[in-house]
């Protein structure tokens, strides 16, 4: 049992790293009261997923998927890269919308600390 665990830890350490980064992001999103830090947490979370995808496409000894003359060439899987390009676009847009919202929140409330915002909301 433990042996298989360690085996997988060393063979698939990339996935474990992704999970750890993901959790760091999630922690920031939940625990930080500054809205910008929350968004940074979201970005970390998303980045972890990107790493997860990209590392899954790795083929041992593989090369960049550009057509070679040698028929024996091993390529890494290109599709996850393509997907992640799209996902990055999505992540960037999300960040942009979130930052725009934060600017407006700052304009209206004069703060971007969540606890202060909640206090102000209760007053109104």
């Amino acid at each position: 049992m433990i042996e298989t665990f360690f085996q997988s830890l060393f063979l698939r350490y990339n996935y474990y790293m992704a999970v750890i980064i993901m959790l760091i992001g999630l922690y920031a999103m939940i625990a930080k009261s500054n809205l910008i830090k929350k968004i940074i947490g979201l970005n970390i979370f998303q980045t972890a997923i990107f790493l997860f995808y990209i590392s899954s496409s790795e083929v041992t000894g593989g090369t960049a998927p550009i057509l070679m003359s040698d028929p024996g060439t091993v390529y890494v899987n290109p599709l996850p890269h393509v997907l992640i390009l799209t996902a990055i676009v999505v992540a960037v847009s999300t960040t942009a919308v979130a930052l725009a919202l934060i600017i407006r929140i700052y304009e209206t409330y004069g703060t971007i600390e969540e606890d202060e915002l909640l206090v102000q909301e209760e007053k109104t």
Binding site: V90, A98, L101, R104
Partner: peptide
């Protein structure tokens, strides 16, 4: 509506997590 900003922000956080 002032409160909509914060509501939308929370919506965004939850929505993005779900998308992830």
């Amino acid at each position: 509506e002032k409160k909509a900003l914060f509501a939308s922000f929370n919506y965004l956080i939850m929505g993005s997590v779900s998308a992830c």
